[in-house]
């Protein structure tokens, strides 16, 4: 249940960041209809990305580790790789605003998801990092 909540929060954040950046470039009221529609692909992207790249760190962690310990151990490398890939893609697209809005929302959403998972209460007694 907690995991579902976290994913929902991430989808909201992702959509918000995506549209703020798109609107900052060029705002037309006709675009407003697209916001609810965009929830479907954004939700799918979020769900797949989180389930594949973030959730396994917490789901398959050794019992002795707390969520905070998992965060401190793996998040630095995850964030560096994620930032590197996003920056590389932005640079290759010559900082195209549409792609950048997607990449920025992806980076901030995954980061936010890590924070939410790290804050999730632990079920058993664990070793601190």
């Amino acid at each position: 249940m907690d995991t579902l909540k976290i994913i929902l929060k991430s989808i909201v954040l992702s959509t918000t960041i995506f549209w703020i950046i798109i609107i900052s470039k060029d705002f037309e009221t006709d675009m407003l209809y697209l916001i609810p529609l965009s929830w479907i692909p954004i939700s799918l992207c979020c769900l797949i990305t989180i389930c594949i790249t973030v959730l396994p760190f917490f789901s398959f962690k050794p019992d002795k580790y707390t969520n905070k310990a998992v965060f401190k151990r793996y998040f630095p490398f995850y964030s560096i790789v994620c930032f590197g890939l996003c920056f590389y893609a932005s640079y290759n697209s010559k900082f195209d605003i549409d792609l950048m809005s997607f990449l920025a929302s992806a980076f901030f959403t995954t980061t936010y998801t890590w924070v939410l998972f790290a804050k999730k209460p632990n079920e058993q007694n664990h070793l601190e990092d």
């Binding site: 905070k68 965060f71 401190k72 998040f75 630095p76 964030s79 560096i80 980061t111 890590w114 924070v115």
Partner: peptide, 20 residues
């Protein structure tokens, strides 16, 4: 490595520390 991580996510790292 530390410089890169700090520039990307230093604030979030400290936030998790404070949270706990």
């Amino acid at each position: 490595l530390n410089g890169l991580y700090t520039s990307i996510a230093g604030f979030i790292h400290r936030y998790i520390d404070i949270q706990n």
